[in-house]
Amino acid sequence: MAQVLSPLPGTFYTKPSPEAEVFKSEGAAVAVGDTIALVEVMKTFIEIKSEIAGTFTSYLIEDGTPVQAGQALAEVAG
């Protein structure tokens, strides 16, 4: 099990837009470089990408909430 960490502080989003589906749902395949989530920092959206391949387990933070740099955002089973 690997955790995806936030490189920056900001606001965490599990979806590309409020109406869209989540980037990854439980059990989805994850490839290296897949976008897992967004972190909005100072009005800029940073794509959070997976550094490992595997199966998506879950998000660890609620959509639309503040996160700190280094905080675990999601889990991927390698």
Partner: peptide
């Protein structure tokens, strides 16, 4: 014109 002081943590939620 600014809003900083030594030790101020600039929050990530607003304009840069």
């Amino acid at each position: 014109d600014h809003f900083m002081y030594e030790g101020y943590q600039i929050p990530p939620f607003y304009d840069s």
